[in-house]
């Protein structure tokens, strides 16, 4: 077993511990006060972890493909489309994500006097995060597309590939390989950014950790939350690293 796989196993184990504790409703594992407190914190954080993961997963699910569409729009032949997309990207990157979340959350009320339901918090968080991350992914994809040498397009054209074939067969696979490292960065940032959802009172792990810490007048809960973020990101880095290695088959 190589070292990386070992680390991954440890990480998965750590991430699974709370799941096991919770599903078997184990609250006392040892007589040790601190350890038992940690277990109870994990128990209470578990709902938040789930909310954070859902937000994380859905944001990736939507923002990655939307980002590709934004890239296409950004590279559009039509100047108007290009300008609008550029503006969208610059706003998304130039203003705080927290502010964007608040705007998405409150806009229906202030603009259309639609009363805010608490369900909407969840949708607002997913929409806000997806729109923001789509802009970042779009710029990453664009740099990946632009890294494909002009000569490849020309070779494809002389060989008679259609524009669609050229993109699907020649450009896209190369783009994916170019963008993996910056996409990994973005995904890791997203794991941490999910904590910003507290701004619209979407209850995720960080919100709960703060509440517990305040109630206990102890930093322990925040520490446990920190460990979850950290280990989850180790797992993300490991998975992305594996994918990167797989995609490197054709480089010297």
């Amino acid at each position: 077993m190589n070292k990386k796989v070992f680390i991954a196993a440890v990480v998965i184990f750590v991430l699974l511990v709370p799941a096991v504790l919770i599903s078997f409703n184990i609250t006392k594992v040892t007589g040790n006060e601190v350890l038992d407190n940690i277990v109870s914190i994990m128990n209470r954080l578990s709902n938040g972890i789930w909310s954070s993961l859902i937000l994380f997963g859905l944001t990736l699910l939507f923002s990655m493909p939307i980002g590709l569409l934004v890239t296409f729009a950004r590279r559009s032949r039509f100047k108007v489309v290009e300008m609008i997309t550029k503006f969208y990207i610059s706003v998304m990157r130039g203003t705080p994500l927290m502010l964007q979340l608040i705007v998405v959350y409150f806009a229906p009320y202030y603009l259309f006097k639609i009363p805010l339901s608490s369900d909407y918090r969840f949708y607002a968080a997913v929409i806000g995060f997806s729109l923001n991350y789509a802009a970042y992914f779009a710029e990453i994809y664009r740099s990946g597309i632009e890294a494909v040498p002009k000569g490849h397009y020309e070779a494809a054209k002389v060989l008679g590939y259609s524009r669609r074939q050229t993109f699907m067969k020649i450009v896209f696979p190369q783009m994916v390989r170019h963008v993996l490292p910056p996409v990994t960065n973005e995904v890791i940032t997203l794991v941490k950014d999910t904590s910003l959802a507290y701004a619209i009172a979407y209850v995720e792990m960080f919100t709960l950790a703060k509440q517990i810490a305040a109630a206990q007048s102890s930093i322990l809960a925040l520490f446990v939350a920190g460990i979850f973020y950290y280990f989850f990101n180790l797992l993300v880095a490991f998975v992305m690293g594996r994918i990167e290695n797989k995609m490197n088959y054709y480089t010297a």
Binding site: G151, H152, E154, A155, K169, Y250
Partner: peptide, 20 residues
């Protein structure tokens, strides 16, 4: 154009093979 494109080929100075 599409049909006539099949009549000729081009070899580049820097090959332009598809690396993947």
């Amino acid at each position: 154009i599409k049909r006539i494109q099949g009549y000729f080929g081009l070899v580049f100075q820097n090959f332009n093979l598809f690396p993947h």
